[in-house]
Structures are given as C-alpha cells and as structure tokens.
Design a protein around this nucleic acid. Structure first.
Length: 268
DNA sequence: ATACAGGTCTTAA
DNA sequence: TTAAGACCTGTA
C-alpha cells in the first residue's frame, strides 16, 4: 500500500469522466481500475490517495497512467475567468486527468463507444474481455480479465462479437484488428507520429471516424490538442459558444478543456 | 412507443 | 462535396 498526496486528482471524477471504461467503484468506496493486463485498487480521502501497489516498479506504471507528473493546475489557470460556463466546468471537474491509456485498448473501446451509451459501453467491453481476454488474478486472489490483444480478434468472423452485444460494431472491431495485425495500419508507427499524422492514419481503420480518431489520439496517444466533438460537446458549442469556441486560447491542450466540459455535461 | 446514447458507413444527388 | 438512411442494443 502506497499513500500519495495529490493535487488536482480525483478517482471519483476520473471514474465518471467517461475516458476509462474499466474503472469501477467498490462497495467500500474504493475504486478498481483495469488497464491492459494490470489491475489496481485505489482509495482516496481528500488529497490523500492510497494505491494498493505491490512494488515500486508497478507504482511507476500507475504514476504515468494517471499522468501524475503533469500539473493540471496550469490547465485550470489558463481558463478565462470571464467564461462563466468553462470556469464552472473546471471547478466541478478539478480532479480530472487525461489518462495515458493503451493505444489498442482505446482504439477498440472507442470503436465500441459510437452511437452507444456509457453504461452499455462498459458492459460491451466487459463482455469482450471475458470472452476474448486472458483470465488473470490479483495478488489478493481477485479474478479479472485482461483486455484482449488485436491478435485475439483478428481471426474471428465479422459478426462473432455480436455475442458480446457489440451489435453492428462487431465487424468494425474485427476488421480493424485484422488491419492492425496485418500491419496495414501500424500502431507502433502511429505512436511516433504527431497529432495530425496519427489521426489521419487512424482514420484508415474501418469504423473509425473523426470523433473516434480524436478520442484515440487524446486518450491513447496523449495528444492533448485533440478535441473530440460528440453529441454533448456539439450541444455545448452551439449553446454556450454561438460565436465560436476560443480554441486559440487553449492551443496545445484543448482536449483537457474538452474533458472538463464533457464531465460537466455528464454529471452537472 | 419513440428518442437517444462519447458516430460511421453507404449511397445518391 | 454534402445529406439522408441504416444500423445493434438498452434505457427513459
């Protein structure tokens, strides 16, 4: 067990912010997060955060995962005080972070997310992991399922994942997995690209459009300038910023601002 | 019953 | 290049 004192960090807000679909609240108020083939339990009282972490090396992974080296105060401080809507959003979601999640996991997860609601997205992903992921065990003996690698999906029939209730997204996921395994779309290469290059490369995947590509860039590649526009964000832009959103003011980290807005629309 | 979820693809003008 | 329609599923 390791205790850290952290500013601008909230497990509850991160869990509710809709970027990580495998983070759940436990009955005792703690949170369990599964990333790739790792599982962590964490709890929080104010700024004191406890991670149930077996080793320093393991802690290192979660430090980068939660982006703890970054000062999110600088993002909040950049917000225009006269912008009442955004100021409110930042106050409300002060503990949000852009997690550094796995590129393939984000690709698959946001393929599933399209035209879908968050509760069902979670179930779909859990079904997928149970069906195709490796069965794992924490040191405490808790069973969980790792996120399946693309190789585990590439050989399936287009409609095989309808059993996981993915619906028509089944073929998006299977075909994209094939393209990745074959090297037609190279994830290692995409990791080396800048934002516009990476987005263009991701758009070649079947089922990946503008919005999903931006989510993958933001959450799977940590390109903070990516600004995914979904139905909620679209409504906010039309309602609160009829004369245009001040992207120039938030150049380089508009995606962080997007998360504050998304969170406000979700919980507020 | 109908609309809506962190949209994208296909097809037709 | 843009615009309608179709699309799995579950909840309100």
């Amino acid at each position: 067990m390791i205790t850290l004192e952290l500013e601008h960090f909230s497990l509850a807000q991160i869990a509710a912010s809709g970027q990580c679909f495998r983070m759940t609240k436990n009955e005792d108020g703690s949170y369990t997060v599964i990333a790739g083939d790792r599982c962590l339990r964490g709890s929080q009282e104010g700024s004191l955060v406890e991670f149930d972490c077996p080793s320093l090396k393991e802690l290192g992974f979660w430090v980068q995962y939660f982006d703890l080296e970054e000062d999110y105060g600088r993002f909040a401080a950049a917000v225009d005080e006269r912008d009442a809507y955004l100021s409110g959003a930042v106050r409300l979601g002060d503990g949000i972070r852009i997690l550094r999640q796995d590129l393939w996991e984000m690709t698959a997860s946001f393929l599933i997310s399209q035209n879908n609601n968050i509760a069902r997205i979670r179930r779909c992903i859990e079904n997928l992991c149970r069906s195709c992921g490796e069965k794992k065990c924490t040191k405490d003996g808790e069973v969980f399922y790792a996120f399946p690698q693309p190789e585990a999906l590439a050989g399936l029939a287009d409609d095989a994942l309808m059993d996981c209730n993915l619906g028509y997204r089944s073929r998006y996921l299977v075909r994209s997995a094939k393209m990745i395994v074959s090297g037609e779309v190279s994830l290692p290469a995409i990791r080396q690209m800048n934002y516009p290059e990476a987005k263009a490369a991701l758009l070649k995947l079947y089922g990946v459009g503008e919005k999903v590509a931006d989510c993958i860039c933001l959450f799977g590649l940590h390109h903070l300038e990516a600004f995914p526009v979904d139905t909620h964000i679209r409504q906010v832009l039309d309602r609160e910023y009829p004369d245009g959103f001040p992207f120039g003011r938030y150049e380089g980290f508009a995606g962080v601002i997007q998360q504050y807005i998304f969170y406000k629309e979700l919980v507020g």
